[in-house]
Design a binder for these strands. Structure first.
Lengths: 95, 95
DNA sequence: TTGATATGTCAGCGATCGATGACATTTCTC
DNA sequence: GAGAAATGTCATCGATCGCTGACATATCAA
């Protein structure tokens, strides 16, 4: 999941928390914050502390990856990397 | 790059900023924060605001991905995907 | 060195964080 | 529906945010 905004991050946290069958209280205790904090972050609170956010992600076994994005061609539909296409191309070259 | 802590995030931001030949002042202006903020975040400030962090990443064309992590086999060295190795293997197969 | 540029440090300030605790509302199981 | 559980809302409070502006160190070129 690509994270662009605090709201998207909040949605990811909520979805994952529910998938793990945790309620806000036990989740909050697990990461050492108040339930109030969980509520606000799940709702997309933009000014939440970075450190607490990272702890929350860790508590839910969510990994965060930072990578420099290739600029998509203008007007182009964003496309996923197609590993098979790359491999096929490589084979063709050889032949 | 896997992000676990504010310090790691700060390092990523700094490296990318330098790669783009930006100084702290112009970078700060670009994302709408003070130079002071840039300094602190690059040094791993844990209480930085999530929203500003996301804007900084966007300004540097860094994408953030959240994914549920597969537990690595015990004792296993974490290995990055090596696209070149995959392509090379495909070529070999063909030949 | 001198000068220019980049980065780091400090103090003061208004704004807002996150914690707490109580209460309200929604969402479930019976 | 009744009751319980989960979630959302509100006010208060100390602590700390990020901003400003000035000054202090690097860092590097001429």
């Amino acid at each position: 999941m690509l994270i662009r905004t605090p709201a998207e991050l909040g949605a990811v946290l909520r979805d994952r928390r529910k998938k793990l069958k945790l309620d806000q209280s036990t989740f909050a205790k697990r990461i050492g914050v108040s339930r109030q904090w969980v509520i606000e972050v799940e709702h997309g609170h933009a000014r939440a502390e970075l450190g607490l956010i990272l702890r929350a992600l860790d508590a839910l076994d969510i990994r965060l990856d930072a990578s420099t994005e290739q600029a998509p061609a203008r007007g182009a539909t964003r496309q996923a990397i197609d590993i098979n296409a790359i491999v096929a191309k490589a084979r063709k070259k050889k032949a």
